[in-house]
Amino acid sequence: MASLQAPARRPRAAGRPRAARWRRHAWSYAFLVPAALLFCGFSIWPMLASWWYSFFEWDGVGAPTDWIGLDNFRDVLGAGGFWDAFWHSFLFSLAALFIELPLALILAILLNNAWLRGRNVYRLALFLPVVTTTAVVGIVFAILFDPIRGVVNTALTDIGLVDSPINFLGSTTTALPTLIGIDIWKGFGITLIYWLAALQTIPKDIHEAALIDGANPRQSLRFVVLPMLVPLAIVILLLVFQRSLNTFDLVQATTQGGPNYATDVVPTYIYRFAFDPFLQAPRYGFACAAGVVFGVMTLLITLLQAPVLRRQYKAGATT
């Protein structure tokens, strides 16, 4: 990580224009220092440390001494439970990217319109799930989706959509989709806020200028506004992707990964081995190895998308 700050100390090049540019860059590097310190201390270092721990059979207390080489990794890669959890995490991400992201954009465009009365109220309403305590969300949905007395099943059977109540959270086939739905509900407000902020970065004048130039609102949106959103859209995409991969609280509060691990995701899997209070012997080293494998895999998946994203970014930035 020395690379973050090192260039600032490079000797200044000769020649006035270059020196001037260097001075400007020197400021840029100086601006990077606080973030770099915080980031190295609390992201890079713990990450490296956990890599180190993943080579030990270690319960998280005292100094790790029991070096077991790649055994933890062998165990992780061979654990069916881990790959199931990985797949579930991946499904959470797909849902977030292909359902939540576009829906939130549509609503953000709608709620960004000055002519829509009461848009502040709508925004607040859509945002409220974000601030609803996750543990309470867990019990509320457990009660709402209950196959015996739950209001959802009562409504569905009354309308006649289903013959017998659906065991939403209890069946291994429906539990994961239900949980993904709840996750989208809970996180939707955040994505909406991102989009609203992104829309705000587009000067109104540009939209209006396009209209005056004869474009209809749809054309203006399609050819002027959306392309301008692209750089931030890619950032938002990454954020949503990352958040969806780290879904933990909601799963823990609603199903604890059940039934029969049908909703287990990687963070709950890791938690079970590192911190579960019912564990007689924590396997912190193993949990670290699982974290490393998960991180590397998602990074690879992201890198596969990188060329596409970069092309989009460049196309958007030059529009």
Partner: peptide, 16 residues
């Protein structure tokens, strides 16, 4: 068996 037990937490049994 009562449907939904598959995702019960520890306190649902006595509640039900």
């Amino acid at each position: 068996m009562v449907p939904g037990w598959e995702s019960w937490d520890g306190s649902r049994a006595f509640t039900e």
